[in-house]
């Protein structure tokens, strides 16, 4: 799995890390599942019971054709109906920055799932800081390619911001990862480097 872990298999290093966390047969809900890339990886490799929520009808259709159970909806309106702990894992991958009320959403994730996985682009990354501090512009990167007036992202945070939210909510961090621009995980012994050099972060949370 080393080649896969570096992200070459899918181009999404965070997905590979997420797949490695999950056990065969687990029940998984992926919120903002897009065309079902992660859910398909999970189904094919681990035979999990995979469900998804996706906002675009095109994404839903692709997921259906791939045999996935996906409802058109979003994290703002469609989580309340799921019973407590009805999934082993609830995943919010690269989507917390678009939800209306991230704190409320994180609360729902850990309510529905025994564990929740949240991955997000780190706004504390040096390249973003550079663009804001030196260039004086709103940041645009490969992962955040749209200008300020067109981006759907409304709630950016840094890794430190996210940690502060989890502490405030009294949630447990079961595991966390920070990935460099090349998709490799930054060593755990240098956590102070994460907020500066981590392009994206992955947190595994529980109540």
């Amino acid at each position: 799995m080393n080649a896969a872990k570096s992200g070459f298999a899918t181009g999404r290093a965070d997905l590979e890390i997420i797949v490695d966390l999950i056990k065969p047969g687990d029940r998984v809900l992926d919120i903002g599942c897009g065309d079902g890339t992660l859910l398909r990886m999970l189904e094919e490799r681990l035979d999990v019971d995979a469900r998804g929520i996706e906002i675009s009808p095109e994404g839903v259709t692709k997921c259906l054709a791939a045999g996935l159970s996906v409802i058109q909806g979003n994290a703002n309106h469609d989580l309340a109906s799921y019973p407590d702990k009805s999934f082993d894992w609830v995943i919010l991958s690269q989507a917390i920055q678009v939800v209306h009320n991230p704190k409320e959403t994180v609360r729902e994730l850990v309510r529905i799932g025994k564990k929740a996985i949240v991955s997000f682009p780190n706004f504390g990354h040096w390249h973003i800081r550079w663009q804001v501090a030196i260039e004086g512009r709103m940041p645009m990167t490969n992962r955040l390619p749209l200008p300020w007036y067109a981006t759907p992202n409304i709630h950016f945070c840094t890794i430190r911001d996210f940690r502060a939210l989890i502490d405030e909510m009294g949630l447990k961090t079961e595991a966390h990862f920070a990935l460099r621009s090349d998709g490799r995980a930054i060593a755990r012994r240098h956590p102070w480097l994460w907020n500066l050099f981590g392009r994206e972060a992955i947190f595994v949370l529980s109540e």
Partner: peptide
């Protein structure tokens, strides 16, 4: 349809849904 989906979710059913424009 959403009311039905929410009931199916609550029942733990496998459910897919889309609204066609």
């Amino acid at each position: 349809s959403r009311t039905i989906i929410h009931a199916l979710n609550a029942a733990g059913a496998s459910v897919s849904f889309a609204e066609i424009e």
